[in-house]
Amino acid sequence: MIFKLIALPIIGVILIAGVRRARRLDRSILARGIWLLVWGSAAVLILYPEITTRVASWVGIGRGSDLVFYIAIIVLTAVVLSLLVWVDNLDERISKLVGQHAIEEYERTSRDATRRGHHPDV
């Protein structure tokens, strides 16, 4: 009972904050749906934990806690992969910026050197 009293309000806050943030950032219906599905499912499973045992025996896993564990691994893997993509995109953008800056800096230095009468590449 104590766990439910602590976990459910936290999940409620996460759900509402997530939906408001998705609306503010104009996220897709799919992204909002996944958010609602993940946290809504968590709330339902906390309220009715016996569902996990029923689903687990239906899919042939055995214990409900094992099912939750496997699902958690899948969800966390998806989160890690999406973070990897995000970091990769960021890396690409930073690299482009650094490259552009380096070229601009070189051309500026070359122009200055030419104006002073020096050969730009020496």
Binding site: S95, H101, A102, Y106
Partner: peptide
Amino acid sequence: VIDHRLNCGLGAALST
């Protein structure tokens, strides 16, 4: 000589 201020990697250096 073109100086990348940060180490961006081989791909970024080749691209530049």
